[in-house]
């Protein structure tokens, strides 16, 4: 699903690369934790997959596309296959739960018949049935993150990227979110989650990628947060 071949990313005006010579492959349906300190390159890693940047060197394949040569105008089509969730939810204020999720389908031109079917289905999946008409300001943090996950997943993407999805949530709520991500992963969606939450990583026992100063220092199946 995702292949990094010797990928290096420099930012303009910086001597040290944000990512250096990354080689790895993430298969379809895998669940991967991305760990490392702030500034270790996690965000760059995720943004390369989203094709917000191009690799400076090396080749990156996502969903069968070579992102280095992917045409600018094909980027939206790529992003329709990737759902994204952030620490700060990024919901639209003044819109209801339903509207926030439907927005993601409206703006890619889905017919309203499809929207009317997919949005309630997805809201049920994330456990928000009955709260469709609530404004997101009225929701708890956990519920807001569920809305964000519903929005990311409503188009049934092949890949779900989660950048610190539990960073603003208490441990109990985080467990709920992780269960949800796990359920999504079981529906054959590749999940890549950047996190600082050692408890979650240690409990889930999934593949762990650790970045340190832009280099991949650990790639461990059924791994833990901190290596010994």
């Amino acid at each position: 699903m995702i292949t990094f071949e010797d990928v290096t990313k420099f930012y303009p005006g910086q001597d040290r690369p944000a990512l250096r010579n990354i080689n790895l492959e993430i298969a379809k349906g895998e669940f991967v934790f991305l760990v490392g300190q702030s500034g270790s390159g996690k965000s760059t890693f995720l943004r390369l997959i989203l094709r917000e940047y191009r690799p400076s060197k090396g080749t990156l394949y996502v969903a069968g596309k070579n992102l280095s040569t992917l045409n600018q105008w094909k980027v939206p089509a790529l992003r329709r296959q990737i759902g994204t969730v952030f620490q700060d939810f990024r919901l639209l204020p003044g819109k209801t739960v339903y509207e926030n999720v439907a927005f993601a389908l409206q703006v890619i031109g889905k017919p309203s018949k499809v929207i009317r079917k997919l949005v309630p289905e997805t809201l049920e999946l994330v456990g928000l049935q009955g709260k469709e008409q609530r404004l997101n300001e009225e929701l708890s943090g956990g519920e807001q993150q569920r809305v964000a996950i519903a929005r990311a997943f409503v188009n049934r993407p092949k890949i779900l990227i989660a950048d610190e999805p539990t960073g603003n949530l208490d441990p109990e709520t985080s467990v709920g979110i992780m269960k949800l991500l796990d359920r999504i992963n079981r529906s054959d969606t590749t999940v890549i989650m950047a996190t600082h939450d050692s408890t979650i990583v240690d409990q889930m026992r999934r593949r762990v990628l650790e970045l340190r100063q832009g280099e991949l220092v650990r790639d461990q199946a059924k791994g833990v947060y901190g290596a010994n």
């Binding site: 105008w73 939206p76 992003r79 296959q81 994204t84 927005f103 929005r151």
Partner: peptide, 10 residues
């Protein structure tokens, strides 16, 4: 920002 993220065309 969200439109770009979910793949709305320019």
């Amino acid at each position: 920002g969200i439109m770009r993220l979910v793949g709305a065309s320019n």
